[in-house]
Design a protein around this nucleic acid. Structure first.
Lengths: 160, 160
DNA sequence: AAACCGCTCATCCTTTTGGGTGATTTTAAA
DNA sequence: TTTAAAATCACCCAAAAGGATGAGCGGTTT
């Protein structure tokens, strides 16, 4: 709202400026046709005017750049409540279903080989998935991945 | 980097444009001094040029407008009773303090080497401890050890 | 003193895990 | 339809983890 008014104000300002300019030019044309530096002045005015107009136009056109600020909000949760998967975090880190599947089997303590057998894929595939997971979770080892994942709410906590 | 190149490209473009304009104007001045619409053309060219220049200038000058998006990130907090170590299980499995120490560092995702540094012992020592732990917990891998330990109440559960 | 235990460390060897890269295929979205 | 992302697999190499075994040291218990 205020933004719009400001822009309108600017616009009106420029319009008024233009009107004044026109009058000024007419006046120059008919009154002092043979003024010594008339041409230079005229050109300068035009230049300055369009320069300002260009600046204004650019400001109008430019799309504002977005900056995201993540604010952590504490939420108290009872242990006994069922685990709720944090899908926001999943999307944020672009973790696929398959990767999450591997992650969860990892957390159960399975080796890559066992995971491969469980999912009917090759060992190499499991490795690829785990490598991507480590990148996305910003960790170096599977144990860290499990820790981090639980903290982020991607895996259910292990309760005795 | 790409941004900078783009800007440079633009800059060079404008420079070239200006040079062409100068030549054009000279040409107009000396060759067709009495051309019918010379003045209007000249002014138009000046106007267009400064309009573009203004746009370019504005883009250069304007500090990027930041639009802040606040994303609330839920952080799970456990208000339940603090973790109670299951000492019975500890005694039953004859797990020593040192072993438990290693186990807990393991659960934090540390490598054997990092654990060794943390405890001021050699890598081999850590390996020995972990090997004994695996025996006592009846597991094969550290990930399983962590899982089992949490289930037995030897380690605090990881809560988001 | 002998036996035992926890802690320490070593060596040798194998398996597992992880990093990097590249390729193909399937699937989903624009 | 073109593009983009996911999922699949391979190969190579390096680092970490694990298994097996032996051994020394400082305590406590008997």
């Amino acid at each position: 709202m205020i933004e719009k008014l400001k822009r309108h104000k600017e616009l009106l300002g420029y319009a008024a400026m233009m009107a004044v300019l026109m009058l000024l030019l007419r006046w120059l044309e008919f009154r002092f046709l043979i003024l010594e530096h008339q041409f230079e002045i005229y050109v300068t005015i035009i230049a300055v005017f369009f320069l300002l107009f260009g600046i204004w136009l650019a400001n109008k056109i430019t799309n504002p750049k977005e900056k995201t600020i993540i604010v952590e909000k504490e939420v108290r949760i009872n242990i006994n409540e069922p685990f709720i998967l944090n899908e926001t975090e999943l999307e944020l880190r672009k973790i696929s279903k398959r990767e999450l599947e591997v992650l969860s089997l990892m957390a159960e303590g399975l080796s890559n080989n066992e995971i491969a057998e469980r999912l009917f894929v090759s060992l190499n595939t499991v490795k690829t998935h785990s490598a991507k997971l480590f990148e996305k979770l910003e960790v170096k080892r599977r144990t860290q991945a499990i820790e981090t994942a639980k903290k982020l709410g991607l895996l259910a906590p292990t309760l005795g």
